[in-house]
């Protein structure tokens, strides 16, 4: 097994990072299908709790009910948030995935920049999420039935609003994007290692596998 892998990689060592870039692209694409973030609200009269799931493209769960409750404090409707982001997200993720997989097929040094969108995607998501939480908590309608001080709902962890206990959590989609980001980073590392080995004409070690440039074993 190891031998066959060795022979296969000896033919083209870049096959190794290429695998990382390809898997990362697919994971990133896959993440669109899963929620990135969720908010759970617990209150006595909701024994099953209320849950809102944030996907990069849309919201799901008890959005109508949460909107309904939020209107008492003058919060805007959740679906009005991040409309541009939700529209662009599939394009952005598609582009990031495409760039990351392009990286698999070029050995040029500068091409490393193609990894940036995919690597940064989770961080961009969190930043944007925080921005909207802040904006929603700080743009409360002053004519609402109840007036509460401006606040930022927590991005992670436990909070309290009225009789509601809230729990904010990162979800599967986000962790897929993080995995994709890490895989891209690992792929970049090996890409560099291989290129250096090729340039220096030195032996290349990847775990138990040792490859000599030029196909010699």
């Amino acid at each position: 097994m190891t031998k066959r892998l060795q022979a296969w990689l000896a033919e083209d060592p870049f096959r190794f990072p290429r695998a990382f870039f390809t898997v990362a692209s697919w994971l990133l694409l896959l993440s669109v299908l899963f929620p990135y973030w969720s908010l759970t609200l617990m209150a006595p009269q909701y024994p099953r709790g209320l849950q809102v799931f944030v996907y990069v493209t849309h919201l799901a769960g008890d959005v109508a009910e949460v909107d309904n409750l939020n209107h008492y404090v003058g919060m805007k409707k959740l679906n009005q948030a991040a409309q541009v982001e939700k529209f662009l997200a599939p394009l952005a993720i598609g582009a990031a995935a495409l760039l990351a997989s392009t990286l698999a097929y070029t050995r040029r040094r500068w091409a490393a920049v193609l990894a940036i969108p995919a690597m940064l995607f989770p961080v961009i998501f969190l930043g944007d999420m925080y921005y909207w939480l802040y904006r929603y908590g700080h743009n409360l309608d002053p004519n609402a039935p109840l007036r509460i001080p401006a606040f930022t709902p927590p991005l992670f962890g436990v909070g309290t609003v009225g009789q509601f206990k809230t729990v904010a959590q990162l979800q599967v989609g986000f962790w897929l994007a993080v995995a994709a980001s890490l895989l891209v980073a690992v792929g970049l590392h090996y890409r560099r290692v291989i290129r250096q080995a090729l340039e220096g004409n030195s032996a290349l070690r990847i775990g138990p596998i040792t490859i000599f440039p030029g196909g010699a074993t």
Binding site: Q45, Y46, D62, A64, E65, N68
Partner: peptide, 11 residues
């Protein structure tokens, strides 16, 4: 006079 209860919460 048509009235729709647009609630989705139980009860």
């Amino acid at each position: 006079w048509h009235i729709t209860n647009i609630e989705r919460a139980r009860d």
